[in-house]
Design a binder for these strands. Structure first.
Lengths: 343, 343
DNA sequence: TTTTTTTACGCAAACGTTCCCGGGAAGAAA
DNA sequence: TTTCTTCCCGGGAACGTTTGCGTAAAAAAA
């Protein structure tokens, strides 16, 4: 099955003029007579002519499309971020091609290569939790492909970055729990190499220390697969609860981790927040529907997406090589609900 | 900023052979000597040659990309469906370009036109709730662009369709509520023109009638914007609760509608399931975390995506025009939890 | 040796577009 | 009348590939 469409050549033939004249008329060149222009424009309108973007891409060596690399879109944070990305990209005439790594290094590499070979003009990336080797990004970046990282970023590549203030978020959440009388605060988080993990861990640590509590690394559990695998989180939890230093509070670092924790706690018969408190990093829009209602740290996902795509498009459209890069830090939103306040 | 890459011309020049020879060597043509092939292959590998897909698209008049038109990806059903779509598309060498209508007819039209002009090879569509005029699809379809509808389908276009068994789902849910002693069962659903609305409504009606209850149209509320606008749902609810025929149960037709109903009921101080029961069509993966746990009808989103993309790719790759179309009906999953069972 | 076949490769066109360059016609300046 | 501008427009190359056709050299057959 094929899908024929009208070309500039067809118009030229129909009107008895050359393709170059048609092209120029369409672009409103001054060196085409008003009469010819009118004729071409009218005919093009009549036959509903649409320039072939593929031919244009070939000629201009750019595709007006940008690639997005995230772990998965079935995740509140990323789907909201993609909404932000799309809202801007569309207006600026760019297409968005989304690919999911599912937290797998291998798939990330494949996806990135695929996107690059599809000639995307730039990449918007949130690194997978399995990724420690960044060669696939570095290669492309060195060849001149504009890349902007968001949320899960890296210091190994000097470019624009957009992150949330994870340090402050974790700090505030920890202080909040301490102020509510919790003393054994666990932190269930992503893979240790991820920037978000490190930022949050730092905030968590500092809050503990500044409030006279010791940092206990046995209370920190890393989920290498970022919660894609429920067993991983359950293992972390059972490990916590069987240890001698049982936590009385948890800070969960992600959407899945949070819901998994809630389920596990519920199944274990513990009472929230009496036996254990929980604060979750989640962009769920229904934290009030949980029982008890869930205290959350919400990332500015939509805005992060918007800022990231703005930066990327600026990079793409910049006439001269950009040498000054910035890291934008957006504020998170901390909403205290029942799950972290003892009654 | 631009991003140069290696072409077969470069390879030819480097090896002192023509581009056609390089092309043929790369494709493993039999009319190229083993020696030359080896040379070319090795060199291509060495410089990391990647064929330019844009040039290929131009030549073959297809882009190996397919467009997906949904309401929004920040929705469990659609993000799961997209996962299904991607899982297949990737393996078969297709790119997926996602666009969101946000339940707006205007945006749907713009998106579809945009996708078409980007030369997608086919379209996977779930119609927006505002859409009553299908001209934008009919046009493209008549020009030969393969389209497969899923979830929200239409009878105005003869092509493959993939839907859930909405009739049975609604029927079963209604019967379940009746069996649990509920008599005034309300149905809060999408726009009346949507196929899913009609299918569910039919199941709901038939279940009532077959169980000796009268169908009361005042208990059915339509949300034209499919729950994108919370006020719409709230209005429907307050309308229901202030009427003389107060419902004692609700069947909510979508993700957003369900959560919105839960919030509203919670705020109104009513007790679920004592004062009012609720069953929701939702693909949320945390219905157990709600209080009370939520009885749900889950659509086979992932499978629907998979089946739809399979059908679409078959259509695209079919040598001869396809005249036999099918409508696949997949089964839903009904899980009864606390919200619909009186204690 | 001559003729035929096979092998291995190059040329050029095509996909749809833009844009440089060149040139004819008409009008203006000499 | 001749020369110079100005105004319009067409030819053709280029972007990266594939592919039909042509052909020189080598191999096989005569």
């Amino acid at each position: 099955m094929k899908f024929e469409s009208i070309t500039i050549k067809d118009i030229g033939k129909a009107l008895g003029i050359s393709t170059s004249t048609v092209s120029r008329a369409l672009r409103g060149s001054h060196e085409i007579s008003a009469e010819t222009k009118k004729q071409v424009l009218e005919y093009a309108e009549k036959v509903n002519y649409r320039p072939n973007p593929i031919a244009l891409s070939l000629k201009e060596r750019k595709s007006r499309s940008i690639g997005v690399v995230v772990c998965e879109i079935a995740n509140n944070f990323f789907s909201q971020a993609i909404n932000g990305i799309e809202s801007i990209a569309y207006n600026r005439g760019y297409h968005v091609i989304i690919s999911q790594s599912h937290e797998s290094y291998k798939r990330e590499v494949v996806n990135v290569q695929h996107l690059a070979s599809r000639s995307v003009d730039g990449l918007l990336v949130s690194i997978s939790s399995e990724t420690t080797n960044l060669a696939h990004f570095i290669n492309l970046h060195e060849k001149g492909l504009p890349i902007v990282f968001f949320d899960r970023v890296t210091n190994e590549i000097i470019t624009h970055k957009v992150i949330a203030d994870n340090y402050k978020a974790a700090y505030d959440a920890t202080v909040h729990l301490i102020n509510n009388g919790y003393k054994n605060i666990a932190h269930i988080t992503f893979a240790p190499f991820l920037s978000i993990t490190q930022e949050r861990l730092a905030g968590y640590k500092d809050a503990l220390v500044k409030n006279g509590l010791a940092y206990n690394e046995r209370l920190v559990k890393y989920c290498t697969y970022g919660g894609m695998i429920a067993e991983e989180i359950e293992a972390a939890l059972s490990n916590l609860f069987t240890s001698t230093e049982k936590p009385d509070a948890i800070i969960a670092a992600g959407d899945r981790i949070t819901t998994c924790c809630l389920t596990a706690i519920k199944n274990s018969g513990l009472h929230i927040p009496h036996d254990i408190a929980i604060v979750g990093f989640t962009n769920s829009n229904i934290p009030e529907l949980f029982a008890p209602t869930l205290s959350t740290i919400r990332l500015p996902a939509f805005e992060m997406g918007q800022v990231a795509i703005e930066l990327l498009i600026n990079l793409i459209e910049s006439k001269r090589p950009v040498t000054e890069f910035e890291t934008k830090v957006l504020q998170t939103e901390f909403v205290i609900r029942e799950s972290s306040v003892k009654v």
